[in-house]
């Protein structure tokens, strides 16, 4: 379990990185934290000719606040997001969810862009980003493009990222005051990839009816899944147990999770409903408590 031979390139700034990508893109792999790539190298499941280590490109690092969103540089580490007071204040769903990513020793190296680019359907960040209706900013030596998660995540481990592009930053919309949020996940062991996970943001009107519902399910499909009908069903309703149960199970038939030894297709589908109901309950409780009031 040793990496195969490759040429190692370490750009010092974004321009260098993009130039290298333009030159070697087809035969190159971008590495930031390496927490997904190095296991693949060690198992020789990936044998790139070049590795472009963007870990020192300062322009890709950092967490900043814009009007509607928290904007996180592609190579910002999980641990920095986890500990960010700004993220905790403006986008607490992300803080809650990111703690489910692997273990501390992974989060100290793993990066936000790396996780998004790897596009594991069970990974937490793609699910959270999808629930928040965030955006991914991709850049190449030619252009900068901003896409939605639906445009970005194409299938299992497959994204619309071209060989000459890298993820510059990710925009996580802020959670409005008066909204509640919840992230629910079950995994066989603590720190494992999720069997299923759910991220929810609920906005309540003053009268307690649901003004907006944003939901994403991870591990339930080849890409993070937005149950649009369930969202629409919830909007305008005064939530109670039966409504939430109905919403949670409304679109289970639309899910097409991959079955494996840890959970069959049917089980994951069923579990999606259980977790969604729990997440909705928790999000609504939070909204009601006026966490952000």
């Amino acid at each position: 379990m040793k990496p195969p031979k490759f040429s190692y390139l370490r750009p010092n700034n974004l321009q260098e990185a993009l130039d290298m990508l333009a030159e070697y893109g087809d035969d190159a792999k971008i590495m930031s934290g390496g927490q997904s790539l190095i296991p693949l190298l060690n198992m020789r499941l990936s044998t790139p000719g070049y590795i472009i280590d963007i870990g020192r490109v300062e322009e890709l690092k950092g967490i900043k606040e814009e009007e509607d969103a928290i904007v996180i540089g592609g190579i910002t580490r999980h641990v920095d997001v986890e500990k960010s007071a700004l993220v905790q204040e403006k986008c607490p769903l992300l803080t809650e969810g990111i703690r489910w990513v692997g273990h501390n020793q992974i989060r100290t190296r793993g990066t936000i862009g790396g996780s998004i680019a790897h596009a594991d359907p069970s990974a937490e960040l793609p699910c959270i980003l999808t629930a928040l209706r965030g955006e991914i900013v991709m850049v190449s030596s030619e252009e900068e493009i901003t896409v939605s998660p639906e445009e970005f995540f194409l299938s299992y481990l497959l994204t619309s990222l071209e060989p000459n592009q890298l993820i510059k930053e990710i925009r996580f919309p802020k959670i409005k005051k008066g909204s509640g949020y919840a992230f629910e996940e079950v995994a066989r062991r603590h720190g494992d990839f999720a069997l299923v996970e759910v991220a929810v943001v609920i906005e309540l009107d003053d009268d307690g009816t649901i003004a907006d519902a944003k939901i994403a399910l991870g591990g339930a499909n080849s890409v993070p899944f937005i149950p649009e009908a369930a969202e629409e069903f919830l909007i305008g309703k005064l939530p109670d147990d039966s409504i939430l149960k109905e919403a949670a199970t409304l679109q289970l038939d639309d899910l097409d999770p991959e079955g494996d030894i840890h959970g069959s297709k049917e089980y994951r589908r069923y579990l999606s409903g259980v977790l969604l109901e729990r997440a909705l309950n928790r999000a609504i409780d939070r909204a009601r408590e006026g966490v952000f009031a």
Binding site: R188, R189, H190, G191, D192, F193, I261, H262
Partner: peptide
């Protein structure tokens, strides 16, 4: 330890073969 019908080992890594952690 799980094999498929072709005798391929399905639980060939520590991601599939689940050794309990301190949480379990």
């Amino acid at each position: 330890i799980i094999y498929d019908k072709n005798g391929q080992l399905v639980t060939g890594t520590y991601m599939d073969y689940l050794i309990p952690t301190a949480m379990e």
